[in-house]
């Protein structure tokens, strides 16, 4: 993104949408982080300045012990929906916690599958869901004990 877009990107009226004038993603994300005493930061390398290496990274800090820290929710379905909706895009999902980790990388899945099998195929989607559920079983058991 150009620098002047980065400066206003957390304003709900700054949006790349054409169907309406409001984009709520980043503003709501910022609000959620700030409600726990945290914050977000958006760093972007504009294609014009970095033709080989452009991109945007969003960092967010949430304080988990704050009363307004929201529950994690159903991450398995969330990741599955993301992949199912954009099967040509690559996602690297990683959740580190005490005692373990949940990892899923679509580039590894594509390598294992080879050509011609879309990640949105029901069989693959179902495999991804089971793969994540299995890894989350460790996280869920741990949380039950706390």
């Amino acid at each position: 993104m150009p620098p002047d877009t980065v400066a206003t990107v957390t304003d709900p009226f700054t949006t790349s949408r054409t169907t309406r004038k409001v984009g709520m993603g980043l503003p709501l994300f910022k609000l959620a982080a700030e409600q726990t005493g945290g914050n977000i930061s958006v760093e972007s390398r504009w294609e014009k300045d970095f033709p080989e290496n452009h991109g945007t990274t969003v960092y967010a800090l949430f304080y988990r012990d704050h009363i307004d820290f929201p529950p994690l929710g159903d991450m398995v379905s969330t990741v599955v929906t993301l992949i199912q909706g954009s099967p040509d895009r690559d996602f690297h999902y990683e959740h580190d916690f005490d005692g373990g980790q949940v990892v899923l990388d679509t580039t590894e899945i594509r390598n294992a599958l080879g050509e011609g099998v879309p990640l949105s195929s029901p069989e693959i989607v179902s495999w991804i869901a089971d793969y994540l559920k299995e890894q989350y079983a460790v996280y869920n058991n741990k949380n039950k004990q706390d």
């Binding site: 899945i109 294992a112 599958l113 099998v117 195929s121 069989e123 693959i124 495999w127 299995e134």
Partner: peptide
Amino acid sequence: MKSLAELAAIREQMKDKIVLRE
């Protein structure tokens, strides 16, 4: 225990169906 190796097996099963999917 799920592994990436299973994906190769799934792909084999799907081979016939892939042609139809286009």
